[in-house]
């Protein structure tokens, strides 16, 4: 059994989903209620691999909402993640992916210090951030989509926004080691981390967002964009490929402009239908087949019987691990989303 811990994108979204699923007790409630709401298993389904192997999974809704961070309900936010993890473990799930903000909250608030949740000791080896697979998929999206837009990577400048994060740094490693991109622009808020990353890569240049965007043929977004970032679309290159690795995926509106192609980053498509309803709820275009790569990682680890925290901690993603998860991804029938 594998598991997915997810959450909805906003209070409004949560209300409408609760309404749609027929939970009136939840549908009319404000943020206070969601701060008190317990985690729930809201979906139980089977996934069939290209090899014919079948596994079972459960989706745990943590009831976390991004508004909790915005309103400084930090304790509530951290409780949501820990309680969802405890719930998954109690359900007997072998390996569970921390989707959306879950892994970010876990890391930022150092939740590894809190091992005890009520009468349960959390076993962190049963969880994965899914970041290795997400990073791999984003890299493949860059490699596979760029040529179709007339962008030759060996002649291209690629900007990575959020370069020092777990996914961002892995993407930079791959782009440096495996793709032969001409230039790599490293964009992030923390200068010290940026310099360390550049020293590790021995490649790329540290830049601000404003400096980097007009030079980039490809932009990989793996940072949460501060609200209200204004981009002058006329200054961007044409063609330009934007890979939107954030959650929720909302960049197509920001970058709706001739010559700019926005790809939903870190999304995979499975070759066989999955009989679940949860991807409907997060507004996937093809909900029976498309899913977040981090979720797919827990499926892959279950298929491969790798019941271990494959992606864990910050900046631990190596090219070898990306190769391993990438190979498993192909074998079991997942493809990076290219449209």
């Amino acid at each position: 059994m594998f598991g997915l811990i997810g959450h909805l994108t906003s209070l409004e979204h949560a209300k409408s989903v609760a309404h749609k699923l027929g939970y009136p007790e939840y549908a009319e409630q404000g943020l206070d209620f969601w701060c008190s709401a317990p985690p729930q298993v809201v979906d139980h389904f089977k996934v069939v691999s290209a090899t014919g192997q079948t596994i079972e999974g459960k989706y745990v809704e943590s009831c976390f909402l991004p508004e909790m961070l915005a309103n400084r309900r930090i304790k509530a936010a951290t409780r949501k993640i820990l309680n969802a993890m405890a719930h998954a473990q109690k359900e007997g799930i072998n390996i569970t992916a921390l989707g959306g903000f879950s892994s970010i909250i876990f890391e930022n608030f150092k939740l590894e210090q809190i091992k005890r949740v009520r009468n349960l000791d959390l076993d962190f080896s049963k969880f994965t951030t899914g970041n290795t697979h997400t990073a791999y998929v984003i890299c493949k999206q860059v490699e596979d989509a760029a040529p179709g837009l007339g962008i030759d990577l060996t002649e291209a400048t690629v900007a990575v926004c959020g370069a020092t994060g777990d996914i961002g740094s892995a993407v930079c490693r791959w782009l440096t080691g495996r793709t032969g991109v001409k230039d790599l622009l490293l964009v992030a808020r923390n200068q010290e981390r940026l310099e360390n990353l550049q020293a590790e890569l021995k490649f790329g240049r540290v830049q601000t967002l404003d400096e980097a965007l007009p030079q980039a043929d490809v932009v990989v977004w793996v940072a949460s964009m501060p609200k209200g970032v204004e981009v002058n679309l006329e200054t961007l290159k044409q063609p330009c490929l934007m890979v939107d690795g954030g959650y929720p995926k909302n960049m197509d509106a920001t970058f709706s402009y001739p010559g700019i192609t926005v790809l939903k980053g870190g999304i995979v498509e499975h070759m066989l239908d999955i009989d679940w309803h949860i991807m409907n709820i997060v507004n996937m275009d093809v909900p029976g087949r498309q899913l977040f790569a981090c979720f797919a990682e827990s499926m892959l680890l279950e298929f491969e019987k790798l019941h271990t925290n494959f992606s864990w901690g910050r900046n631990q993603i190596t090219l070898e691990k990306m190769d391993l998860i990438g190979e498993a991804s192909r074998r079991h029938g997942f493809k990076p989303l290219l449209t």
Partner: peptide, 16 residues
């Protein structure tokens, strides 16, 4: 002791 934490803990244990 925060009320939302109390309610949440109650709902989890009661629900289980």
């Amino acid at each position: 002791m925060e009320k939302d934490a109390l309610v949440e803990d109650f709902m989890i244990t009661y629900g289980e």
